[in-house]
């Protein structure tokens, strides 16, 4: 076996373990990660497989095909993270605003008895 292969496989497995241990635990997420690990390990073990897929898609080398797909993948991840950060920012803004308003009028109730926010 080429020396890089066990290193890559170990890295992928470590990623999966860390993901399961630290991140989301929904079934769908876990299945996606398992699929990703399986495909990655498959590609590492027999790289010719990527080349044959690449040829079918009109791309010269398997490495190029993987590069294109990872670019697309990272772009999506960037977008998801961006919209998630924006959402967080909105929540932080609302919190900061309520704090400021509450400090200005400590007596005023921000919520009614039904738990609805008073405008």
């Amino acid at each position: 076996m080429i020396p890089i292969k066990p290193v890559l496989i170990a890295a992928i497995l470590l990623f999966a373990v860390l993901y399961f241990a630290k991140l989301r635990s929904r079934l769908w997420d876990r299945m996606l990660v398992l699929l990703f690990v399986a495909v990655s390990v498959g590609f590492i073990v027999s790289p010719d497989f990527t080349t044959s897929i690449a040829h079918r898609l009109g791309v010269g080398r398997g490495a190029d095909l993987l590069f294109y797909f990872s670019l697309i993948g990272f772009s999506f991840i960037f977008l998801l993270l961006f919209s998630w950060i924006r959402e967080l920012q909105q929540q932080v803004t609302s919190l900061a605003r309520e704090l400021a308003l509450h400090a200005a009028d400590p007596e005023r109730r921000a919520w009614n008895e039904n738990g609805d926010q008073i405008p």
Partner: peptide, 14 residues
């Protein structure tokens, strides 16, 4: 004046 304070800097729109 009446003063309000954001605990963190949020921007002019906020």
């Amino acid at each position: 004046v009446r003063r309000l304070r954001h605990p963190i800097n949020l921007g002019q729109g906020a």
